[in-house]
Design a protein around this nucleic acid. Structure first.
Lengths: 204, 204, 204, 204
DNA sequence: AATGAATGAGGGTTCATTCAT
DNA sequence: GATGAATGAACCCTCATTCAT
């Protein structure tokens, strides 16, 4: 594993991420990945074994990215636990915005049966463990409702953030919203946050 | 356009829906569609022009389905406007559950650039118009918060219902929930509804 | 199975026989077979499933040829049972000479493990059955030695005829014989026949 | 040519013999030879020039082996010239049995046109020269028939021994003999010897 | 001398699409 | 209108061979 081969491997992985993200497993072309990466097609097979395995590696690498980023979220939440909902939602949206291949690969994968989704399991477990503790703490403090589980909470935040990107095209047509414009998007999400948030804290 | 050809056309469309829903535009095979439909491959080209055009027709047909169903929702909401949120969410989930090809085709389409999403625009416009009126009415009555637009409301309901299906595989791994089991799903969605609902009605 | 497709199938089989006979399973090229046959490459896959299956079909077809021809031998032996050894050897040599692809395909196949050799089993069984009867008859008549089985007899005839073709190149070098020349070949085989023959009939 | 490089060369040649013997020129893979030999692929090109040249070298080396062994046969025949046929046949069978790559490489080569067969010429010439003298001597003694040339004699012995191995798979099917079992094989060959032998010595 | 990385020309196979009947 | 046969352009993958260190 010389630095040269490591470099080639990485170039292939980068190109694969772009290509698979764009067109999915079946739409992607190995030739295109080779060309995009500047490497020889055969190297793909030497390093990754085949198209499907490369897709899997690409997916894994993309999922790995979320881990690092979630560390920031955890640190932030530890410092300032007020506004947990907002901070988490913001983080999710920001992450998906900056890593379009993440949600795209995940979406392709889910449509194809999610055989590789298991990769995600263990990976995010730890983050969730810490967040769950924080959530329960706040439930005890009376800031979050006790009859709403952490799972439902995180599910909702995931859904409203993921959907924004994954169904953007359809949304723009049906809701007549230009979600490409940050301002429009922010306004929408602010309202969504409001909707979620005020189920949490019993203002009275 | 004899009744015989109409019949063949329909059989092709049905087979195409199944195949495209399963595997997407690129994963689907024209041969398979022909076989599944019992029609000759060449008929597909005679009637639809090509694979992509067939996909488009399939998508359109699937979207059209939502119209009929949404009439029921509107009627129901007209009769009993209390529990608008719950009724809508239930309707969405039930629809997606009974029409997996709908959300699947939409998901494939969104990933591919959503060129055909425009079809949806006009189609659901009318439904939304009626729902928006109802929503505003209830805002005036103080049952829904005034600073949360109809768009944000419907966006949230759409997201939490669609996400349940579109990301099911990933969800099962990360949240350790067995979403195939109706009971688990119902419990989750009940909590999500709670979360959304209590931002609407200021209990005090 | 129209006559047109039957024709194409046959053209492919003919071309395959030539190509496989020349270069064996691994040396043969599907493109070349397609070109030689004048058919489209894809037809090969449509009709035969793949390269290896085509090879198998080719082998089967070639083996089938020997059956028809062996009928002539049987008839001949029935008419004139004297000179059984000579007639059989002549027939074998003549057959191999006129069907080079037969022994070549068989030779390739034997080298590759003979997985398909089983095809031959049942096929020649009947011929051998009749010949065995004839052989035993002649043993009883004291024309063939009783301590030499039919198997050893037919084995020897097969070996000396097959070897003439299968090892021709090597033979020409080591024995300095020009086996391409019919006269040389005939002289050699006449002597070999003599060698075999006089073990059969106890001249005394 | 250090002893280290000599060693590498030998390891390559050994691996090549195994691989080419198994799969022939076209079926063999350079990568596999490199792996089997434990040497680097590039060394093959440095030492042998290419795949085909390596095959040729492998063939030459294998043919060379026969020389040493045939010395034993000659010595044996010199000591005890009675039973020349049997001794020679036994020797051939034993040699082929112990050196499967010899007959396999030769068979592949013959099928591919036998371009390298010339190597054999010179190599066995000397052995044959001695054997021919012995044969003629015995013809004069009236032990071998005068109208059967040495070439026909040696041809027959070569054929019946070589064929046993080269066509084993086909034979097992057509003659229903289990040639893998030594006993079966011995019985068959004993009868074949009988057949040949008694053409030699005019018992009367 | 030796190695791991890289290359480019195929090699087998499949696909969407069209033709001939 | 309908069908089975045919086509050619890819598509994934592999191989013999060479390069750079």
């Amino acid at each position: 594993m010389t630095s040269r081969s490591e470099d080639t491997r990485k170039k292939i992985l980068d190109a694969a991420r772009a290509e698979f993200s764009d067109k999915g497993l079946h739409g992607a072309r190995v030739d295109v990945i080779a060309e995009r990466s500047g490497a020889n097609k055969e190297r793909i097979y030497a390093y990754f074994g085949g198209k499907e395995q490369l897709f899997r590696e690409t997916l894994k690498a993309s999922i790995a990215e979320i881990i690092n980023e979630e560390q920031f979220l955890l640190e932030q939440l530890a410092k300032d636990p007020t506004r947990m909902t907002e901070a988490t939602l913001d983080h999710y949206i920001s992450f998906l915005e900056r890593h379009p291949h993440f949600w795209r690969l995940l979406a392709w994968e889910n449509l194809s049966g999610g055989a590789e989704a298991e990769v995600m399991g263990g990976i995010r477990e730890e983050t969730f463990k810490e967040m769950r503790q924080l959530y329960k703490q706040r439930q005890k403090l009376g800031l979050f409702r006790k009859d709403i589980s952490f799972e439902a909470f995180i599910y909702t935040l995931s859904a409203v953030s993921f959907f924004l990107f994954s169904n953007r095209h359809t949304l723009e047509r049906t809701l007549q919203l230009d979600l490409g414009t940050p301002a429009t998007r922010k306004k929408l999400m602010a309202e969504v946050l409001e909707l979620i948030n005020h189920g949490q804290i019993p203002h009275r």
